[in-house]
Amino acid sequence: MTDQVREGVVLFGCPRSGTTLLRRLLDAHPSFAAPGETYALTSAARFLEGERMVDGLEVGVVNGLGFLGFSSDEVVGRLRDLVFSFRREHAASEGKPRWVEKTAVDAFHLATIHRLCADRVQYVCIVRHGLDVVCSMQDWIGKSQAYPSELHRYIRENPRPLHAFARAWVDATNAILDFAESNPEDACLLQYENLVADPNSNLAALFEFLGEDYVAASLSTALTGKDSKGFSDWKSFARSAIEDASVGRWKTVLSRETVMELSEIVNPTLRRIGYEPVVGGGTQDEAQKRRRYEIGLALQKLK
């Protein structure tokens, strides 16, 4: 199937890694219909994912229907046909031959989505600096006032939300990196910081991977439209051009002590991608912590 143009493209990235930006850039291309988040693959993955019992048996729909004589390939195939049919129909209504599916939490269902879509689609993966993701997740959760179910496990296991976000980033990012390394013909890996620093050359390489001509002119209009179909990232619509203002934001948002704590979680994965490991401030004794708190209180009076 690798020598045929595949109808679908699936975007994988940890939430807050630039997947919405990438989706909007692809949607500006005449070949791709890339609407807001449909949760089509997320929901299909949740449908397929069972629970592992103590004896190793997976309890879920695949084995449940298996006992009735339906093979797992048949269950997965029928579900694929259902999901793809919606996206195919929407793309046709937009007058475009191919579709792009992006939902923020798909990276947490990567293996199941790959099982569902296999080599019938191409995959575009994007990674971003973990501490910038952590900061953006904090904003996202604050705005949403809720944690998506994919983060519940991390929140249960980590009483400090930033630690939970960092561990979620580590898991999602390593899953993406493993996937991209294992499927080099099917997957293209982008780095957010490179994309915003040099959109033209990164997008040219991406469209070459997708087997499409790169339409540079579409870059100037990609972010000016207010495509309102589907769920999407509110911050993305505040920008009309690609910018790198949020690169390295963690340096001003996170305290040095917090960076030190998070460094133990994120540094191995940062190194794997090629980022410099982060270094926080030294350990503070109780007197230093009290002093910082006193200064913080004094500053509140200035506002």
């Binding site: 001003t252 948002v253 996170l254 305290s255 040095r256 230093q288 002093r291 910082r292 200064i295 913080g296 500053l299 509140q300 200035l302």
Partner: peptide, 20 residues
């Protein structure tokens, strides 16, 4: 710096701690 948001509270704490 502070009243216009060039640096925020976290950074101001760092700055004063550094000065001390």
């Amino acid at each position: 710096l502070f009243s216009t948001g060039v640096i925020d509270s976290f950074s101001m704490i760092e700055l004063i701690t550094y000065i001390e």
